[in-house]
Design a protein around this nucleic acid. Sequence first.
RNA 1: GGCCCCGUCGUCUAGUCUGGCCUAGGACACCAGGUUUUCAUCCUGGCGACUGGGGUUCAAAUCCCCACGGGGUCACCA
Length: 494
Amino acid sequence: MSSPSPKDVRVRIAPSPTGTIHLGLARTTLFNWAYARHHGGKLILRIEDTDTDRSIPESEEQILEGLTWLGTQWDEGPGVGGPHEPYHQAQRVANHTLAADKLLEAGHAYRCFCSRERLNDLRTAMEAKKETPRYDRTCRDLERAESDARAAAGELFALRFRVQPGETVVNDLVRGKVTFQNADVDDWVMVRQGGNPTYNFVVVCDDADMQISHVFRGEEHLVNTPKQILLYQAMGLEAPEFGHLPLMLGKDGKKLSKRHGSVSLALFREAGYAKAATLNFLARQGWSLDGETEIFSMERFVEAFDICDVNKAGSIFDYEKFAWMSGEYVRLESLAELRENCTPFLIASGLLSAEQIAADPARLEGALALGQDRIRIYSEMPEQIAFLYSADDAVEYEEKAEANCRKHANRIQILKDYLAFLRPALEGGASAQDLRTAAKAWVGEQGLKFPQLFQPLRCALTGKAGGPDMFDIIAWLGTGSTIRRIELGIERLA
RNA sequence: GGCCCCGUCGUCUAGUCUGGCCUAGGACACCAGGUUUUCAUCCUGGCGACUGGGGUUCAAAUCCCCACGGGGUCACCA
């Protein structure tokens, strides 16, 4: 179990509104959320919109909607408010400016009058010499009076952090002690020319203001951490605890990104992965319950989750296993749940209209029951049950199904004979089980093998080579459709 | 290239902190059987890993060192 923190647990997620929810953000959110819930703490959502050029207006809306769908409800942030408003970074610039002034005053920051052009040249030159590009600290030792005068004269400047010699240790809850030499830390820009603060600066200001106790984020941020710790120290504040989550990787072992295909949470929703499976699978990225149990609820996850148990190594995202897990959850659903989850896909596919579904939900559930074991994601349901809803005279015969029938020379006679045998039973209201038993007995009496009857029968009724139990299908289709389809089969398979 | 992180089956992982119970367990995928009228589900079995090398120790996947491999990051992006 985690050592209980002396202060209240307050974790946060800080997405920038530059797109939709990436799988990485979803996992980071889930872990933060679980940690907060486990410790009775709070999850704060803060929108990192300092880069006005890259921010996309609809993006925030999509992020909020996506997180709401996931069910990782935040306790403070956009939509719910909280004691540390505003929760948009861009609206907190007054605080940032104040903090920047203090840092400048105290000598922890200095004005840099270097032009973008000079900086670019510098970087190119250093790269050419195969050195790590970094600021050469030209303005670091400018006299304060000169600096003030040039600023007063209207000269443009950025504000840089003055990194002092020494070393900085990150006590990472996932990775243990990580030590950085301050000599390797650049005098990074805190405030851009023009007054816009940068990420590394505002993230510290805001985390401090919002009394964030633990920062759990992707490993790509590990190298930023010394900068941030140094800043906390300069501001005379205690830094939060850090925990850097292992990266989620693509097939090639590199950080999951757009070029790997589906990395947007929305895409998986649209494809119809079960939500509970999505949560469950995300929880298994870099964490496991006990090494045995794959399927577990969020309640169990929250109960068992501890940041110390998170893996250090990155994990390749296994789409195949994700689909398997979705199937596991699909099979666990009640028919009412399945109907609700499949409805959008049935409508989108054009198989059924909302009106048709509303008119007879029980009938639909009967159809869904036939498909439940055969799909992994909801979007597969329409094609799975389409044959049930097709017009009797428009059942599409798959090539393989028809070929199976044509192997049996006497298929037509068998179908005719069986129809004659079936008709009275059907009209007498026999159950699926009765029909099944009777059919098997009939096949024996006729001296036939099962495929001789069942392959032509399946083709006539469904047009497919495989599928649900024949007699469940007959029961669902009803007497009229069943007879009609067999009659048509007798013609079409001749 | 500098700095930092990581390294158990093809993949996700248990085991590593607290060395022995590990001839390394589970899951996905794959293969083979079983069940079924068929497909799927389900059940059984199989395949399959401690990156390498040195130490320390009675004993190392577990501790130490080195090598190798992979990744992250080096912006007035976040």
